[in-house]
Nucleic acid binder design. Structure first.
Length: 256
DNA sequence: ATGTCACTAGGTTAGTGA
C-alpha cells in the first residue's frame, strides 16, 4: 500500500496538479491539507473520474482536509470525536485494517500570537485522540502538515531560524509526546541524517535557494514500521508550474 | 526575516494568513 500526504494550498487552484500527480504516482491513499474549500465545492466528480473516492471536511477560506483513496475507507471520521472547534484540520479512515489519520496542525504564526497556545493545545488534544486510536488500530499512520520541524537537521539554517515558531522547544516536545505513543518519523528512520525539505517559503526565492524545512511528516506506528519499504519527498512537484509551497511525501508499505 | 501566493470582502485593491 502506498500512502501520501500533500499540503496543496487551495485545491481549487491545485486540482490540475493533484490529478496529474495521482495519475503519475497512483497512490492508494492521498491525504490533502489546506484544501480551502467548503464541502459543497469539493471536486467529487473530477476525482471520481480519476478513480478516487473522497472523504473531505472543509470550511470557507482556511484549512480543510481530505483523504482521496482507491477504495472506500471504513470508520471514516471528520473532526474531533468531542465535536468541532470550527477549524477543519482533522480526518481519518481505515484501509485494509490500516488506520490513516490526516492532520493539518495549526501554524502558530509566532510565539507571541494567540495562535501559538492554540497550536500547543491542539497538539495535546491530538495526542489524546491518537492514544485512543492506537488501541483500536495498532497499525496506524499519522500523516500531514505538522508545522513543526522535528529537529535541527530538518531546517536549512537552524542558527538563523533559532527557536522561532515551527522550531520552538514546546512544539518539538509536543511532537515527541506524540512519538512516545509508539510512532516513528518514517522518513527520518529511513534516511539517517539526510537533509531534505518538504516546504519552501514562496517569499525570498525560498525554493530557488533551497531554503526549506521538513514539516510534512508520516508517522508510522511501531507495528507498521517493519513494513516500511520507502519514504520519499517528491521535490519535483514543488518545481512544477504554479506549485503549492509544499511537496508531497509518499510512503510505501510492503504488500501482505 | 521576506524577493509570494491565495483568500475574501467589497468596491477594481487591501487586509489576512501562511
Amino acid at each position: 500500500m502506498r500512502v501520501a500526504s500533500w499540503n496543496v494550498n487551495s485545491l481549487k487552484v491545485r486540482l490540475p496538479q493533484v490529478l496529474e500527480w495521482l495519475q503519475e504516482k497512483s497512490p492508494d491513499v492521498l491525504c490533502l491539507q489546506e484544501t480551502k474549500l467548503t464541502d459543497e465545492k469539493f471536486p467529487v466528480a473530477e476525482l471520481a473520474e480519476a478513480g478516487y473516492h473522497a472523504l473531505y471536511h472543509g470550511q470557507p477560506t482556511y484549512n480543510g482536509v481530505a483523504i482521496l483513496s482507491r477504495s472506500v475507507p471504513e470508520d471514516g471520521r471528520c473532526d474531533w470525536p468531542e465535536g468541532s472547534d470550527g477549524q477543519a484540520r482533522l480526518c481519518a479512515g481505515t484501509f485494509a485494517g490500516t488506520r490513516v489519520v490526516n492532520v493539518y496542525v495549526p501554524n502558530g504564526q509566532s510565539l507571541e500570537s494567540d495562535k501559538y497556545p492554540y497550536k500547543l493545545q491542539w497538539l495535546e488534544r491530538l495526542r489524546a485522540l491518537i492514544a485512543k486510536e492506537l488501541q483500536q488500530w495498532p497499525r496506524l499512520l499519522l500523516v500531514g502538515d505538522f508545522n513543526i520541524a522535528p529537529d535541527d537537521r530538518d531546517v536549512y539554517d537552524p542558527v538563523a531560524w533559532g527557536e522561532d515558531v515551527l522550531c520552538s522547544p514546546p512544539e518539538r516536545a509536543a511532537l515527541s509526546a506524540l512519538l512516545n505513543l509508539g510512532l516513528q518519523d518514517s522518513w527520518r528512520h529511513q534516511h539517517g541524517d539526510l537533509q531534505e525539505w518538504s516546504w519552501w517559503d514562496y517569499r525570498a526565492a525560498g525554493f530557488r535557494r533551497n531554503r526549506g524545512l521538513r514539516i510534512d511528516l508520516i508517522l508510522a506506528s511501531n507495528a507498521l514500521m517493519a513494513e516500511v519499504q520507502d519514504v520519499v519527498i517528491d521535490r519535483n512537484a514543488r518545481a512544477a508550474e504554479r506549485p503549492s509551497d509544499h511537496a508531497p511525501v509518499l510512503i510505501q508499505l510492503q504488500e501482505e
